[in-house]
Design a protein around this nucleic acid. Structure first.
Lengths: 157, 157
DNA sequence: TCAGATTGCTAGATAAACTAGCAATACCTC
DNA sequence: GAGGTATTGCTAGTTTATCTAGCAATCTGA
């Protein structure tokens, strides 16, 4: 994931190691999510949509079907079907948008929240346990690095 | 991505910030990859398989159709079709396994390597530039943290 | 040596994405 | 305001990618 560039100095080697580790974490995350499609009898997109809803809910930001389409990079038609599945399975509800008559607001049901944390809870705890091994100064450096990286990777969303 | 657990101390807040950032990086990575399906006229699985091949090649480890099926969590039947697509598009070749008559070894073509870096090269450079801002000590801490996290998330692969 | 696993494949069914086009609503410019 | 233009979420029909089941060939271990 960072070839055609051969690290020369020790500093550059350290850079390469970090980028390799980032890739590994990212892959582990992806497998964790795709593992959920088994655990929750759902496909990857549906899980990704659920995750978006969980995250936005924490930020007190509403989610429209359009937002889901953009985030998952699928068409609005596919998003309609996706929402139909999630509504049928009782994970979300469609509500009218308070100010835009065309739009909808998609909200999680309590069942969906419970199911999500039943599946993810254990791994989230494991991740927290790892992070707690690091002191505040270290965590601050790590968080800053990750945020910088995020900015470099994709300036949108 | 880490709720139903309210951070109390400043240390716990730092932990939560880091886990939030990790999720953001992971999502950015996912969007970067799914963006590739547009850039390279490919679907997400095909790109993921290509990435596996790139990574394993660097490690001088061979990749079988079975490996791809396991890594992507899809059936071997789907993997056969996936490989058919990649072979047809000239990205990979199937070779006989040197010691196991049942198996195959999947290898990248030079075209695939070129296409991959044409699409990813710029972003990889941007990521390296970010990482170079950090000194070796910081990078070491970050890498160790990421590896620890990876172990906590999924012990396999 | 031979019973049981494993590998990669085919065939057919199912699921999930796509494109095109719709009515309803919002926005912008006169 | 009134008109045209954009946007939203939906339906319909098509295409693509997955799945399950089962196959022959090969490997492994008792």
């Amino acid at each position: 994931m960072s070839e055609r560039w051969l690290p020369q100095t020790e500093h550059e080697h350290a850079v390469m190691r970090v980028l390799t580790s980032i890739r590994a974490v990212s892959d582990a995350m992806e497998r964790m999510h795709s593992g959920m499609k088994g655990d929750m009898d759902m496909n990857a997109s549906d899980v990704a949509a659920l995750r978006l809803l969980i995250i936005r809910e924490r930020q007190a930001r509403s989610v429209s079907p359009r937002d889901i389409a953009r985030h998952l990079r699928i068409s609005t038609a596919s998003t309609t079907k996706l929402l139909d599945r999630l509504v049928d399975s009782g994970h979300v509800e469609r509500r009218p948008h308070p100010s835009d008559g065309r739009g909808r607001v998609v909200v999680l049901t309590e069942d969906a929240r419970n199911a999500f944390f039943r599946v993810f809870g254990e791994r989230l705890r494991a991740m927290r346990t790892v992070a707690l091994e690091y002191d505040e100064t270290e965590l601050a450096v790590i968080a800053r690095f990750l945020d910088d990286l995020c900015g470099a990777m994709d300036p949108e969303d």
